[in-house]
Nucleic acid binder design. Structure first.
Lengths: 229, 229
DNA sequence: GATGGCATAATTGCATTCAATTTTGTCTTG
DNA sequence: CAAGACAAAATTGAATGCAATTATGCCATC
């Protein structure tokens, strides 16, 4: 039972958590060799983990040039949040129609955990904020929807790692609470309103801080090479 | 230039096309060995291709038990079409707001190709029908949206392979044409109406024919083992 | 003749090894 | 001293080999 999951699964999970908690920042190179060494497995397993992370959009693999933590552009960020609004509206709609028995309780206890992690200023809080949205999706019971939401939420974490202020808690916890209230009352209009506002707020927080440039060398330098003053 | 893409990419593409054109039916086992042999590459490349197909939802991999073409359940089918309606509405909305210059032309010429393939009763027609929807997504220019739509469209092809009538052309071409007309007029209401109707039609076509059972042995036999009359 | 256990075969998971590509450093040459 | 060429180092892409798991066939036993 100790090892129910394969080695590349384990590495995949570890890397994923490291990225989502912003321990590995966008742009960080991820050579197969070092990953294999640090986890005590062969390159093969490391490589497979990287391939899976790539299909999640969390790392970028350039042929013959290795893998690195993905660096979403501002353009991609806008796309991600647009899709999030589209998908999460669907979630809210469904949950207003039918919320599972102890769904509200689960949401509340999750927010409690978020608060605790935030007070302890644990890096977990970053991940937990995202997982609130995944929990919402899970309450719909639609597996594919959960999948898709997970993807956009993960990418959002990356976006905030790149553009947001350092270790910002991604989501306002108050808004999470408000949303739960609206869902409890099955108030679709209000719930979607909160969700839209919530996502816009997160998106703006990202855009506001785009001064901090990531390490996309050529893109940055292209602005400095034109004139030499 | 002949081999700009890696071997597992090539295999991935071939298998993918084979599945989408229903040459490989749901449930077909895909042993790494035979795939490697038939394509003249090692198991490693075959394995990687299978891993990628699995993350697309086109094949299912059970640990230590190998890969097989995925067999979506009727429940999953309902989910897929629900998500398609959600995502493709978004596409239609955007295209009504802003359609690229030669977008309409591209759509028309694609439908032409669909008609040709249908007349020649080529297996390509199955794939082309799906690719019409992907082309729509491409016209929005949103990469992530293209990605997501591709996923649900691919799964739809599988669903029709499993439940639809043999080699049904998945999509009514007339409806594609009507949709183009509505988009040309930027008639959002009509366009979404057509799209919704279109997707419901495809979904119903799947549900109608669910008598033809796929090879999910235990599920089928569970209904036969209870009473012995 | 049916049932359970054991041995064999088939298949996957992973490590190791080899080949190919890219990058970096050095040296020559103008 | 700058620029290009070449060689060495590092890193990825892919193939092979080995151990572990699962499936299949056979045989003994009841």
């Amino acid at each position: 039972m100790s090892t129910n999951l394969s080695r590349s699964d384990a590495i995949y999970g570890s890397l994923r958590r490291a990225i989502l908690e912003q321990a590995l920042k966008p742009g960080t190179k991820l050579p197969e060799d070092s990953i294999g060494d640090t986890f005590g497995v062969s390159r093969t397993s490391a490589r497979n983990a990287l391939l899976r992370l790539a299909s999640d959009g969390l790392v970028e693999i350039k042929p013959n040039r290795g893998a690195a933590v993905a660096m979403p552009t501002l353009e991609e960020a806008v796309e991600v949040f647009a899709l999030r609004r589209c998908l999460e509206r669907e979630v809210i709609e469904r949950l207003c129609k039918r919320m599972p028995r102890d769904g509200i309780d689960a949401l509340i206890s999750h927010v409690r955990e978020e608060e605790r992690a935030l007070k302890a200023s644990s890096p977990r809080s970053i991940r937990l904020a995202g997982e609130f949205h995944i929990l919402l999706a899970e309450l719909t019971g639609a597996k594919l929807l959960i999948d898709f939401i997970s993807q956009v939420v993960s990418r959002s974490s990356l976006i905030l790692a790149r553009f947001g202020r350092p270790h910002s808690a991604e989501c306002g916890i108050d808004e999470h609470i408000q949303l739960i209230e609206a869902l409890k009352r099955q108030d679709l209009a209000r719930a979607t309103e909160i969700m839209d506002h919530h996502l816009h707020a997160v998106e703006d927080r990202a855009k506001a801080d785009d001064d901090r440039e990531g390490p996309d060398i050529s893109e940055i330098l292209s602005r400095y090479m034109a004139k030499s003053d």
